[in-house]
Design a protein around this nucleic acid. Structure first.
Ligand code: ZN
Ligand code: ZN
Ligand code: ZN
Ligand code: ZN
Lengths: 142, 142
DNA sequence: CCCATAATGAGAACGATTACCAATCGCTGT
DNA sequence: ACAGCGATTGGTAATCGTTCTCATTATGGG
């Protein structure tokens, strides 16, 4: 337990419930697409909430550390955030509009675990994400 | 076929076989760990090869575009490169030393394909990577 | 209400990657 | 072997997402 200097997540004692965090939390709860920090910042400003960009980054990062949001890296290096369900799951993400479906895959979990064991690797985690075009974007793309 | 201004990969007509590209190709063939451009640059300089950093980045990117190397993004945003086998596969990567084992997962392919179909997504790709500690690094870490 | 201090935000700093562009060098034809 | 074209190189400036700095503000327990 090192001395904590980083901003605390919503679930920890000592945190403060600020206007900015409420705005962020509400915004995340209202969309199911993976969204970049920059995009969240723009959305908040557009809806009249005054929140600094640094605060958006800080808070999203804190929420990610606390497991309150899932993260995803795009090909061009942007980190996307999304408020997801509590169970372990993976994502089927539309690469055009970001709309996301949570999917689970017990067979994948088993496969990953077995591969790790077979090769003597320890402390193994996995990254499993599916990217495609959602029905709406498929139609729009002709 | 737009006019190509980017450097061409080894397999395309019109390319030139330069000292720098030979050095890069040889270096990649000699290691099985995922490596960053910066690391490749350092390794080449250490072995006496004079290759500019921009050239390392350019050439690795071109090889990645041509499918001659696989790429991977670390949590801290670095892109790693590795010369892999030609078949479709995934990776079991040591997060300490980078040593990598190519693994295949027919069950994962089927699962991914089914999930995409079930939700009406088209043009779906998947990212599946396993990260852990290899036997050697597990032992070293105590 | 008070006040310690958590939190904010504007801007500087950062780090990986890319763009620029003048100097070089590989390749093809002579 | 030679010349010329243009692909390639590489030092450096520019980009861009993200993090850091730190003076200022605002929360919430007492
Ligand atoms: Zn999720
Ligand atoms: Zn879509
Ligand atoms: Zn590979
Ligand atoms: Zn290792």
């Amino acid at each position: 337990m090192p001395t904590e200097t980083a901003p605390r997540a919503f679930g920890e004692k000592g945190r403060r419930d600020t206007r900015q965090r409420r705005a962020l939390r509400d915004h995340l709860a209202a969309t199911d697409a993976f969204t970049s920090a920059q995009q969240v910042y723009d959305d908040l400003r557009a809806s009249g909430d005054r929140v600094g960009l640094a605060t958006v980054y800080r808070t999203l990062q804190a929420m990610a550390d606390a497991g309150e949001v899932d993260t995803l890296r795009t090909d061009d290096g942007e980190t996307l955030f999304r408020k997801c369900g509590p169970r372990h799951h993976h994502h089927l993400v539309c690469r055009s509009c970001g709309v996301t479906i949570e999917i689970d895959g017990p067979s994948v979990e088993r496969w990953a675990s077995k591969a790790a064991d077979d090769h003597g690797f320890s402390d193994v985690t996995h990254v499993v994400e599916l990217f495609g075009l959602c029905p709406a974007c498929t139609k729009a793309a002709g």
